[in-house]
């Protein structure tokens, strides 16, 4: 038998069928106290599944009506008596300032990069390298010190 198969079998024999850990004595009283506390809450402060059926139905209907009214009013307000082409033109008009800002940023970036002193670029690169180094060190420290405490104990 291979070593790993033997290890699985030995572990199975040692671990399966062990008696459970005794729960703390306080567990039962905690559960009863929490059940009592929750039962004292007024119905609308409990979770939705515990609301009375009529209240749940009314709540759902009210919300559906609100969503429908908002949607219908919103669409009617936007479209009004306009044709589809007019509506599309209106949407494009709203988007125009955003597109203008994007286009300006696109044009500004190469200008800034050319105008920026090279020292700044080196500083940005150094910050990036430092960030990556610290990230790597943290990952190594985490994996060495936190993930393998038992391994440390074994050696």
């Amino acid at each position: 038998m291979r070593n790993d198969e033997k290890l699985e079998q030995v572990m199975n024999e040692a671990l399966r069928g062990l008696p459970p850990r005794p729960a703390p004595d306080s567990l039962e009283s905690r559960v009863l106290a929490e059940i009592e506390r929750r039962s004292m809450l007024v119905w609308w402060r409990r979770s939705f599944v515990h609301w009375p059926g009529a209240a749940r139905a009314a709540f759902v209907l009210l919300n559906v009506a609100l969503v429908a009214a908002t949607f219908v009013n919103g669409v009617a307000g936007l479209v009004g008596g306009r044709s589809l082409t007019e509506f599309a033109a209106m949407v494009l008009m709203w988007l125009r300032p955003f597109l203008a800002v994007l286009s300006s940023v696109g044009a500004l970036t190469p200008v800034l990069l050319n105008a920026m002193p090279s020292g700044w670029l080196y500083a940005c690169a150094a910050v990036g390298v430092l960030y990556a180094t610290l990230f790597g060190l943290s990952a190594v420290a985490y994996r060495t010190l936190y993930l393998r405490p038992s391994m440390a104990g074994n050696s």
Binding site: N3, A14, L18
Partner: peptide
């Protein structure tokens, strides 16, 4: 991963079930 030590035939056999737990 390789196991570098000998796997015993049994584990904790000399303990009662509560002690083992």
């Amino acid at each position: 991963p390789q196991i570098e030590w000998e796997v015993p035939d049994t584990l904790l056999e000399d303990l009662g079930s509560e002690q083992r737990r």
